[in-house]
Simulated scan of single mutants.
Amino acid sequence: MKSDSQLQHDVLDELEWEPSIDQADIGVAVTDGVVTLSGFVKCYPQKMAAEKATRRVAGVKALAEEIKVRFASDPKTADHEIARRILDMFSWNVSIPDDKIAVKVEHGWVTLSGTVDWYYQSDEARKVAGKVNGVVGVSNLIELHKLPTSGDVKDRIVAAIKRNADLDAASVTVFTDGGKVTLGGKVRAWNERQIAESAAWAAPGVTRVEDNIVVV
Protein backbone atom coordinates (compact mmCIF):
# COMPACT_ATOMS: atom_id res chain seq x y z
CA MET A 1 0.00 0.00 0.00
CA LYS A 2 1.38 3.41 -0.98
CA SER A 3 1.98 6.13 1.54
CA ASP A 4 0.34 9.50 0.98
CA SER A 5 3.69 11.07 0.10
CA GLN A 6 4.43 8.37 -2.49
CA LEU A 7 0.96 8.71 -3.97
CA GLN A 8 1.40 12.47 -4.19
CA HIS A 9 4.71 11.97 -5.98
CA ASP A 10 3.13 9.53 -8.45
CA VAL A 11 0.23 11.89 -9.23
CA LEU A 12 2.63 14.79 -9.83
CA ASP A 13 4.71 12.59 -12.14
CA GLU A 14 1.59 11.51 -14.06
CA LEU A 15 0.43 15.10 -14.50
CA GLU A 16 3.88 16.07 -15.77
CA TRP A 17 3.89 13.06 -18.12
CA GLU A 18 0.53 13.96 -19.68
CA PRO A 19 1.34 16.18 -22.73
CA SER A 20 -2.09 17.84 -22.82
CA ILE A 21 -1.64 19.37 -19.36
CA ASP A 22 0.36 22.39 -18.25
CA GLN A 23 0.83 21.28 -14.63
CA ALA A 24 2.89 24.30 -13.50
CA ASP A 25 -0.03 25.82 -11.57
CA ILE A 26 -1.62 22.59 -10.32
CA GLY A 27 -1.23 21.61 -6.68
CA VAL A 28 -1.61 18.07 -5.34
CA ALA A 29 -2.46 17.13 -1.75
CA VAL A 30 -3.11 13.59 -0.48
CA THR A 31 -4.78 12.46 2.76
CA ASP A 32 -5.46 8.77 3.39
CA GLY A 33 -5.44 8.05 -0.34
CA VAL A 34 -7.82 10.89 -1.19
CA VAL A 35 -6.23 13.23 -3.74
CA THR A 36 -7.12 16.93 -3.88
CA LEU A 37 -6.20 18.85 -7.02
CA SER A 38 -6.09 22.63 -6.78
CA GLY A 39 -4.76 25.57 -8.74
CA PHE A 40 -5.40 26.74 -12.28
CA VAL A 41 -5.38 25.54 -15.87
CA LYS A 42 -5.78 27.49 -19.10
CA CYS A 43 -8.85 25.67 -20.46
CA TYR A 44 -11.59 23.19 -19.55
CA PRO A 45 -10.06 20.25 -21.52
CA GLN A 46 -6.91 20.56 -19.38
CA LYS A 47 -9.06 20.43 -16.27
CA MET A 48 -10.67 17.16 -17.46
CA ALA A 49 -7.31 15.75 -18.56
CA ALA A 50 -5.85 16.41 -15.09
CA GLU A 51 -8.75 14.57 -13.49
CA LYS A 52 -8.37 11.57 -15.80
CA ALA A 53 -4.61 11.43 -15.31
CA THR A 54 -5.04 11.40 -11.54
CA ARG A 55 -7.69 8.67 -11.58
CA ARG A 56 -5.45 6.29 -13.50
CA VAL A 57 -2.71 6.41 -10.85
CA ALA A 58 -2.70 3.24 -8.76
CA GLY A 59 -3.64 3.82 -5.12
CA VAL A 60 -5.98 6.78 -5.62
CA LYS A 61 -9.10 6.06 -3.54
CA ALA A 62 -11.02 9.25 -4.28
CA LEU A 63 -10.55 12.59 -5.97
CA ALA A 64 -11.49 16.11 -4.84
CA GLU A 65 -11.11 18.34 -7.86
CA GLU A 66 -10.79 22.06 -7.10
CA ILE A 67 -8.95 23.20 -10.23
CA LYS A 68 -10.20 26.44 -11.75
CA VAL A 69 -10.06 27.45 -15.39
CA ARG A 70 -8.34 30.78 -15.86
CA PHE A 71 -7.85 32.37 -19.23
CA ALA A 72 -4.70 34.21 -20.30
CA SER A 73 -6.49 37.56 -19.99
CA ASP A 74 -7.51 36.91 -16.36
CA PRO A 75 -5.47 38.60 -13.60
CA LYS A 76 -2.78 36.42 -12.03
CA THR A 77 -3.80 36.57 -8.36
CA ALA A 78 -3.03 33.10 -7.01
CA ASP A 79 -0.90 33.22 -3.85
CA HIS A 80 2.19 31.76 -5.50
CA GLU A 81 1.86 34.18 -8.41
CA ILE A 82 1.55 37.14 -6.03
CA ALA A 83 4.66 35.95 -4.17
CA ARG A 84 6.58 35.54 -7.42
CA ARG A 85 5.58 39.01 -8.57
CA ILE A 86 6.65 40.55 -5.26
CA LEU A 87 10.04 38.82 -5.42
CA ASP A 88 10.52 40.07 -8.98
CA MET A 89 9.69 43.63 -7.95
CA PHE A 90 12.07 43.36 -4.98
CA SER A 91 14.89 42.24 -7.28
CA TRP A 92 14.32 45.27 -9.54
CA ASN A 93 14.32 47.77 -6.66
CA VAL A 94 17.81 48.87 -5.56
CA SER A 95 16.43 50.07 -2.22
CA ILE A 96 15.37 46.56 -1.18
CA PRO A 97 17.88 43.86 -0.11
CA ASP A 98 15.80 41.03 -1.56
CA ASP A 99 18.23 38.38 -0.28
CA LYS A 100 17.41 39.39 3.31
CA ILE A 101 13.61 39.40 3.08
CA ALA A 102 11.25 36.41 3.08
CA VAL A 103 7.79 36.62 1.52
CA LYS A 104 4.75 34.58 2.53
CA VAL A 105 1.34 34.92 0.87
CA GLU A 106 -1.84 33.34 2.22
CA HIS A 107 -5.20 34.12 0.62
CA GLY A 108 -3.79 37.38 -0.73
CA TRP A 109 -2.37 38.51 2.61
CA VAL A 110 1.39 39.14 2.46
CA THR A 111 3.73 38.62 5.41
CA LEU A 112 7.24 40.02 5.12
CA SER A 113 10.00 38.86 7.48
CA GLY A 114 13.76 39.02 7.76
CA THR A 115 16.35 41.52 8.97
CA VAL A 116 17.63 44.64 7.22
CA ASP A 117 20.08 47.41 8.07
CA TRP A 118 17.87 50.44 7.48
CA TYR A 119 14.28 51.43 8.18
CA TYR A 120 13.75 52.74 4.64
CA GLN A 121 14.49 49.25 3.27
CA SER A 122 11.73 47.74 5.39
CA ASP A 123 9.32 50.54 4.52
CA GLU A 124 10.05 50.31 0.79
CA ALA A 125 9.46 46.54 0.83
CA ARG A 126 6.09 47.10 2.50
CA LYS A 127 5.08 49.72 -0.05
CA VAL A 128 6.15 47.60 -3.04
CA ALA A 129 4.34 44.50 -1.79
CA GLY A 130 1.15 46.49 -1.24
CA LYS A 131 1.08 47.62 -4.88
CA VAL A 132 0.91 44.11 -6.36
CA ASN A 133 -2.43 43.14 -7.88
CA GLY A 134 -4.33 40.67 -5.69
CA VAL A 135 -2.73 41.71 -2.39
CA VAL A 136 -5.40 42.36 0.28
CA GLY A 137 -3.04 43.34 3.09
CA VAL A 138 0.59 43.39 4.25
CA SER A 139 2.05 42.41 7.64
CA ASN A 140 5.54 43.88 7.89
CA LEU A 141 7.54 41.79 10.38
CA ILE A 142 10.92 42.84 9.02
CA GLU A 143 13.35 43.66 11.83
CA LEU A 144 16.32 46.00 11.96
CA HIS A 145 19.83 44.92 12.87
CA LYS A 146 21.20 45.62 16.32
CA LEU A 147 20.75 49.26 17.14
CA PRO A 148 23.74 51.58 17.32
CA THR A 149 24.15 53.65 20.47
CA SER A 150 21.72 56.51 21.03
CA GLY A 151 24.57 59.01 20.88
CA ASP A 152 25.69 57.72 17.49
CA VAL A 153 22.14 57.90 16.15
CA LYS A 154 21.76 61.47 17.38
CA ASP A 155 25.11 62.56 15.88
CA ARG A 156 24.18 61.14 12.48
CA ILE A 157 20.79 62.83 12.46
CA VAL A 158 22.19 66.20 13.53
CA ALA A 159 24.90 65.93 10.88
CA ALA A 160 22.31 65.13 8.21
CA ILE A 161 20.18 68.11 9.25
CA LYS A 162 23.21 70.42 9.15
CA ARG A 163 24.05 69.29 5.62
CA ASN A 164 20.65 70.38 4.34
CA ALA A 165 20.73 73.92 2.99
CA ASP A 166 16.94 74.29 3.27
CA LEU A 167 16.85 73.79 7.02
CA ASP A 168 18.19 75.86 9.93
CA ALA A 169 19.78 73.10 12.03
CA ALA A 170 19.95 75.32 15.10
CA SER A 171 16.15 75.47 15.23
CA VAL A 172 15.68 71.69 15.55
CA THR A 173 16.34 69.62 18.66
CA VAL A 174 17.06 65.88 18.58
CA PHE A 175 16.63 63.45 21.48
CA THR A 176 17.27 59.71 21.20
CA ASP A 177 16.29 56.75 23.34
CA GLY A 178 17.44 53.50 21.79
CA GLY A 179 15.72 53.33 18.41
CA LYS A 180 13.26 56.11 19.24
CA VAL A 181 13.96 59.64 18.04
CA THR A 182 12.08 62.71 19.30
CA LEU A 183 12.31 65.89 17.26
CA GLY A 184 11.47 69.31 18.66
CA GLY A 185 11.99 72.97 17.98
CA LYS A 186 10.51 75.41 15.49
CA VAL A 187 10.76 75.75 11.70
CA ARG A 188 9.36 78.18 9.16
CA ALA A 189 7.55 75.79 6.81
CA TRP A 190 6.10 72.28 6.59
CA ASN A 191 8.73 71.14 4.10
CA GLU A 192 11.44 71.94 6.69
CA ARG A 193 9.60 69.76 9.22
CA GLN A 194 9.49 66.94 6.66
CA ILE A 195 13.20 67.34 5.91
CA ALA A 196 14.04 66.90 9.59
CA GLU A 197 11.77 63.87 9.92
CA SER A 198 13.26 62.25 6.80
CA ALA A 199 16.76 62.81 8.19
CA ALA A 200 15.73 61.05 11.41
CA TRP A 201 14.26 58.05 9.61
CA ALA A 202 17.39 57.75 7.45
CA ALA A 203 19.61 57.04 10.46
CA PRO A 204 20.49 53.34 10.95
CA GLY A 205 18.59 51.60 13.74
CA VAL A 206 15.75 54.11 14.04
CA THR A 207 12.46 52.31 14.65
CA ARG A 208 10.24 55.23 15.70
CA VAL A 209 10.20 58.98 15.13
CA GLU A 210 8.09 61.32 17.25
CA ASP A 211 7.91 64.65 15.43
CA ASN A 212 7.06 67.51 17.80
CA ILE A 213 8.48 70.25 15.59
CA VAL A 214 6.24 73.31 15.42
CA VAL A 215 5.72 75.30 12.21
CA VAL A 216 5.64 79.05 12.95
Rank of each mutant, 00 (worst) to 15 (best):
G27S: 14
Q6I: 04
R55C: 00
K68D: 08
K180R: 15
V41Q: 02
V135D: 07
F71P: 04
K47L: 15
K146E: 07
W92G: 00
G108V: 03
I96D: 05
T182S: 15
I142Q: 01
S91K: 14
S20V: 03
G179Q: 03
V60I: 02
K127N: 05
V136S: 15
I161H: 03
V172D: 01
L87T: 06
D79N: 03
R163L: 07
E18M: 00
Y120V: 03
A50E: 05
N191Q: 03
A53W: 05
S3T: 01
D99M: 07
D22T: 05
K68N: 13
E81T: 03
E14W: 02
V69D: 04
W190S: 10
I157M: 05
G33Y: 09
H145I: 04
D155V: 04
V153Q: 04
V187T: 10
A203N: 13
H107S: 15
A159I: 04
E51P: 10
I142S: 02
F175T: 10
R85F: 00
D4Y: 01
W17M: 06
T111S: 11
T182N: 13
T182Q: 14
L37I: 02
D25M: 14
A29L: 11
D79S: 04
E18D: 14
Q46K: 13
F40Y: 08
S171A: 13
A53L: 09
G39T: 01
T207L: 06
A202I: 07
R156V: 05
D155T: 12
D4M: 02
K180V: 07
A83R: 08
I213H: 13
W92Q: 11
E81P: 12
D98L: 08
A102D: 06
F40E: 15
I96H: 06
K2W: 05
E124W: 08
K104H: 11
L141C: 11
A102T: 10
V206M: 10
E210I: 13
A160E: 00
I213E: 09
V94Y: 12
P19N: 03
V153A: 11
H9K: 15
P204E: 06
P75A: 08
V35N: 10
L87P: 03
I195A: 14
S73K: 13
L87D: 10
G134V: 01
E14R: 15
